[in-house]
Measured scan of single mutants.
Amino acid sequence: TRVETATETAWISLVTALHLVLGLSAVLGLLLLRWQFPAHYRRLRHALW
C-alpha cells in the first residue's frame, strides 16, 4: 500500500505540473497572438462576444 500511495502522489504531481505547463503555454500563446495580431484579435473577440 505504501508503494501504491507513492505512485499515486507521483501521478498527481505529474498531472498538476502538466496542467500548469499547459495553462501557462495557453496564456503565453494568447498574449503572443494579441501582441502580434491586434486587429485580428479584436475582430476575433468581437465575433466571440
Rank of each mutant, 00 (worst) to 15 (best):
Thr1Ala: 12
Thr1Ile: 13
Thr1Tyr: 12
Thr1Asp: 06
Arg2Leu: 12
Arg2His: 14
Arg2Ala: 11
Val3Thr: 01
Val3Gly: 01
Val3Tyr: 02
Val3Phe: 06
Val3Asn: 01
Val3Arg: 01
Glu4Ile: 14
Glu4Gln: 13
Glu4Asp: 10
Glu4Met: 15
Thr5Phe: 00
Thr5Ala: 00
Thr5Cys: 00
Ala6Thr: 10
Ala6Asn: 06
Thr7Pro: 13
Thr7Ser: 14
Thr7Glu: 04
Thr7Trp: 12
Glu8Arg: 05
Glu8Thr: 11
Thr9Ile: 13
Thr9Ala: 14
Thr9Gln: 09
Thr9Asp: 06
Thr9Gly: 11
Thr9Tyr: 08
Thr9Pro: 15
Ala10Lys: 11
Ala10Val: 06
Ala10Asn: 01
Ala10Tyr: 04
Trp11Asn: 02
Trp11Ala: 00
Trp11Leu: 03
Trp11Pro: 06
Ile12Leu: 10
Ile12Tyr: 08
Ser13Gln: 10
Ser13Ala: 15
Ser13Asn: 08
Leu14Val: 10
Leu14Thr: 05
Leu14Gln: 02
Leu14Asn: 02
Val15Gln: 07
Val15Phe: 01
Val15Arg: 04
Val15Met: 08
Val15Leu: 07
Thr16Gly: 02
Thr16Lys: 02
Thr16Val: 12
Ala17Ile: 10
Ala17Val: 12
Ala17Pro: 05
Ala17Ser: 06
Ala17Leu: 11
Leu18Trp: 13
Leu18Thr: 06
His19Leu: 03
Leu20Ile: 12
Leu20Val: 12
Val21Ala: 15
Leu22Ser: 13
Leu22Phe: 02
Gly23Leu: 14
Gly23Ile: 13
Gly23Thr: 13
Leu24Pro: 08
Leu24Gln: 05
Leu24Ala: 07
Ser25Trp: 01
Ser25Thr: 13
Ala26Asp: 02
Ala26Leu: 13
Ala26Phe: 14
Val27Gln: 02
Val27Phe: 12
Val27Asp: 05
Val27Pro: 04
Leu28His: 00
Leu28Arg: 04
Leu28Met: 14
Leu28Ser: 04
Leu28Val: 00
Gly29Val: 14
Leu30Gln: 02
Leu30Phe: 13
Leu30Cys: 13
Leu30Asp: 02
Leu30Val: 10
Leu31Asn: 01
Leu31Phe: 12
Leu31Val: 10
Leu32Gln: 06
Leu32Cys: 06
Leu32Asn: 07
Leu33Pro: 05
Leu33Phe: 08
Leu33Tyr: 02
Leu33Lys: 07
Leu33Gln: 05
Arg34Trp: 05
Trp35Arg: 15
Trp35His: 15
Trp35Pro: 15
Gln36Val: 15
Gln36Arg: 15
Phe37Thr: 05
Phe37Ser: 01
Pro38Lys: 13
Pro38Tyr: 14
Pro38Val: 10
Pro38Cys: 02
Ala39Val: 15
Ala39Ser: 11
His40Ile: 05
His40Glu: 08
His40Asn: 11
Tyr41Pro: 07
Tyr41Ala: 15
Tyr41Lys: 08
Tyr41Met: 11
Arg42Ala: 14
Arg42Cys: 07
Arg42Ser: 14
Arg43Asn: 09
Arg43Tyr: 07
Arg43Asp: 08
Arg43Ser: 11
Leu44Ile: 14
Leu44Gln: 00
Leu44Tyr: 04
Leu44Met: 10
Arg45Tyr: 10
Arg45Phe: 10
His46Gly: 09
His46Phe: 07
His46Ile: 03
Leu48Arg: 08
Leu48Glu: 07
Leu48Trp: 07
Trp49Asn: 15
Trp49Gly: 00
Trp49Val: 00
